[in-house]
Every structure is written in C-alpha cells, then in structure tokens.
Design a protein around this nucleic acid. Structure first.
Lengths: 208, 208
DNA sequence: GTCTATATCTCGATAGAC
DNA sequence: GTCTATCGAGATATAGAC
C-alpha cells in the first residue's frame, strides 16, 4: 500500500496494471509510463500512491503472491482422500495459471532475481499464513505414506516435482509450441490433456 | 559472432562474461558496463566485437542454447534400455544444470520475454540439429510404449513433465530454500536425493 | 488528488586519438 | 584492436500549479 489509509479505486487500478506490465516485462523491462497508460492515469500519480518503482513492485508482489498458495491451501484442507486431493490440486493449479498468467510470470521473474522480496515476506510470517501451504502439502503426503495410501516418497521433493511440472508447462510454452503446435491452436484440448497426463503419471508413480 | 572472421580470445572472454551477466540479470537488467568489467575489457570493445546489446545477447544465446539439448541428444542416441536412458537423462541434466546455472537462467529469461530469439534459431534449423532433441526423446518414448517397456503415455507431455521437474528445482531453489534449508546447507545431498526421487517417481509412473 | 513541465541521471552507443 | 571522452535517448522521479 502507499501512504493512503484505505485502498482507493485508483490504487486498485494501478496494482492491476502494474501486475500486467511487471508480469510481461519483468521489473527491469517494465516502464512506469506503460503502467500509467495501462491504468489510464498519469505517470506522476504512480509516485504519489507508491513512492517509487521498487515500492510499487513490492506492493504488487505482496498483493498476489498468495494466489497459487491459496489454491494449495484450499485443496489440502478439504476432507478427502489423497487421490482426490492430488487430482484437485493439479486441476485447480492449472486452471489458476490459465486465468492468471501474469502472476506465474511475476513469480518466475522474482525467483530469477534472487527472490529477495518473497523471502522477506516469507520470513515475516514464519510458518504461518499462505506461505506455509507447501509445508502443509508435504505434511499431507507424509500422512498418506503412513496410512499406506501411497508408497514412500520424499514429501518436499514430490511437492517440487508437482509444482514444477505444472508451472514449467506455461513457462516453456513459447518454445514447446514450435514442437507442439496444438499448444496455440487448441489450447483447451492441450490443457485437458495436461491435467489428465499429470494425474496419471504422478498418481501411478505414487502407487504401490 | 561479430564481424571478425575467427573467434579471438577476447571474443570468447566477452561471450563468457555476457553469459554470466545476462544469466544473472536478464537482458533488460544486464549492463554493458558490468559485462565489460567481468570480461576485463572496455565498454567500447563490446560494441567493436558485437554491434550492440541485442546482437551480443543473440550471440550469447546461440553460443549456449544447445547445452541441455545436447545432453538429451547424447542420452537418446545411446544403445540402452528405456529405463537406463531415463536414468541417464535425469542424472546428466541435473549435473549439467549444476555446472551451468547461467545457461538455465538465460533460457528462462528468454522464455519469459517471448522466446523470440530461440524460435528464430529453431526455425532456421527446422527439425534438424540439437533443436530436435525433445522430438527425438518423444520418439524414444513412443517406441518404448510400442515395445511394451512402459505403459501408454503422451510422449510430448511426458517430455515436458521430465524437463519441468528438473528445471523447476533450480529455478525455485531461492524460495524453496526457506522451506528446505538443506538446499543451501547440503546441496550435494539434496542433488543426490533429487536424482533418486525423480527417477523413482517417473519410472514408477511409467510402469505397468 | 490530478495534472504539466522539468530536473536528474543512467545507460547504450559513437567519435576519434593512439 | 584498444582506449578516453562524450553525446543523446529515454527513464525515474520531483516541483509546483490547479
């Protein structure tokens, strides 16, 4: 947030526009002018609401960083079998990425630049809140192993494998579309295939 | 290459330095001054060997883009079972990423910025050379399915899952290190775990 | 709160001596 | 081929009127 108490309409517009531009171009490639244009306001207003580019970037990140974690948190807290949970996470995370591609891109940019902002946020809320979602998922995996629902597997590594195979799909789409034209020509079909494939390979990989 | 015929010592130094800086900061975040410093030369020299920043970036990318593909090509062309090939690709690709983290980062930056350079390169050598490596891997998967070595799976989706779960591990390391301190404290141990986990989960996922 | 005008500065690129 | 010095575009950020 800027130095304004409540969150005004304009502030929301700025955050939305900034997410879009930062997501597309990254922090370095983004231009304050472009963000202003996208928000339908003036460049000076950006500095009025958010002191400078760094502050704006951090505000945007704080505003959306929980998006994907909240999906995981939602699915892990439902009363359901591990199998259902896995299917739920795969489907919901893929859908979420389709609907909010900029958030995924922002996350990746953040990781590439050392993840200083994320880490600060995660440190602030040590083990609580949305940041703990991957930890909760790992715990659910551990429980499922104990109950014999799935065979023994390293919880954190599986969490990384799951998230990686979901996120990479969108990240590498520009390159893979050369090898697999359906990605751009029939995106819904490929998305459905992806959901089916991931559940198939990962659940089978966990089966006894 | 610049407008010099052979590749001089200086040119190699520049490419090496540029890979480092472009990998760390991305094309937009990179500074010509920093590349010059890293190469131990003068800023003007960069423009002498490579016309401008764009040209330099493309030269760097062309210089290293085949790194990971060559690993896949090497493993897919060996005379070995599918099981051995899968193990070989996982181990070799993970090792390659450890040894050349900047190449991975450059690739990711390239994907985030639309992959215009990669696509041009891939178009130039339509289906030939290193660019066809993922396609060859997909073909090997198809063959293994036909032979009954593994159960039926979508070849291209499996290729993406494999590459994604390998690459994401390095990409998200900054964030996951908060949740899994071993990543920075005992990196060799975690790398060994990763190799073992990936082969375990993916090969089991492919088994009948 | 919102705008115009402008200050300040960083960076890519070039000119030109050696 | 290599350097120093510098130009000029374009970016962030601010000043100040309304």
């Amino acid at each position: 947030m800027g130095h304004i108490a409540g969150s005004s309409e304009t502030e929301t517009q700025i955050l939305k526009a900034a997410l879009c531009v930062f997501g597309q171009k990254g922090k370095d490639g983004a231009r304050m002018q472009e963000i202003a244009d996208e928000a339908g306001i003036n460049k000076a207003m950006l500095h009025y609401y958010f002191r400078n580019k760094d502050t704006l970037y951090e505000a945007v990140f704080r505003h959306v960083h929980g998006h994907f974690f909240s999906v995981i948190e939602s699915e892990t807290s439902k009363e359901q079998s591990f199998k259902q949970m896995l299917k739920g996470i795969i489907d919901a995370l893929l859908d979420e990425h389709v609907q909010h591609p900029d958030v995924n891109r922002l996350w990746t940019h953040e990781n590439l630049s050392g993840a200083h902002v994320v880490r600060r946020i995660l440190e602030e809320s040590k083990g609580t809140g949305l940041g703990s979602a991957p930890g909760v998922l790992a715990e659910r995996i551990r429980e499922a192993v104990d109950k014999g629902e799935i065979r023994s597997v390293h919880p954190m590594h599986f969490t990384m494998t799951l998230m990686g195979s979901i996120i990479f799909f969108f990240l590498a789409a520009p390159v893979f579309s050369t090898l697999m034209p359906d990605i751009v020509e029939h995106p819904e079909k490929v998305l459905a295939e992806r959901k089916q494939h991931l559940f198939d390979i990962l659940y089978n990989g966990l089966s006894n």
